[in-house]
Amino acid sequence: MNTENYISKYCQIENNTVFVNGEKLFELKDVGFSEFIKNAYKEFEIEYPKFFKMDNLSKLAFVTSEIILKDVCEKDQENDIAIVFANQSSSLDTDVKYQNSIQDKENYFPSPAVFVYTLPNICVGEISIKHQLKSENAFFVFENFNTKFITNYANQLIKSRKAESVLCGWVEFYQEKYKSFVYLVSKDGLLFHNEKNINTLYNK
């Protein structure tokens, strides 16, 4: 039995630029993140009104994942794709926004629509809902992208037959400082799924 897994597709978003399989496919300089990500959403012809209700971390994770999944997920059938994401700041960007809504007792209006995004795994839920991925999922927090952990965790999910393929990623967002790197690990693909290749792609 072939125990080797491959990286079949990858997407990166940082500095207002979208790279797909290493190729720059979209760029919009000199605008803030909200403007940029909305334009990226349109550029890649994503149609999903719920996108506009998401917080920034979810928007980033969603668009990066959507670019990969839109051609991979088969409509009207089960897609056994696990999602394993991690970042450094958890949901801190939205945590700060929520804290500001309760800080001033004279102007105290906690918003449920903001509060729900004060958990980092909500972005994983958003992606799962879009593609009906009733599959394995987890969210981790590390100081830096922990290639060793994520690689082993993804391999173990496939080896133990808990998932056919795994969408892995680093999705970091805090106050306009952001970086996403999402890749699909499966039984066939472009590159061997190992720490060295992932580090090379991540640091590109």
């Binding site: 795994n121 987890a138 969210f139 927090v141 922990n146 952990f149 391999n155 173990q156 133990s160």
Partner: peptide, 23 residues
């Protein structure tokens, strides 16, 4: 390793430990 997966985090941590030791 920080597991931050809403209200399942505590029991997911057990699964994560199990999986990473198995790996």
């Amino acid at each position: 390793i920080v597991v931050s997966n809403a209200c399942v985090s505590g029991v997911l941590a057990v699964a994560v430990a199990n999986r990473m030791i198995q790996a």
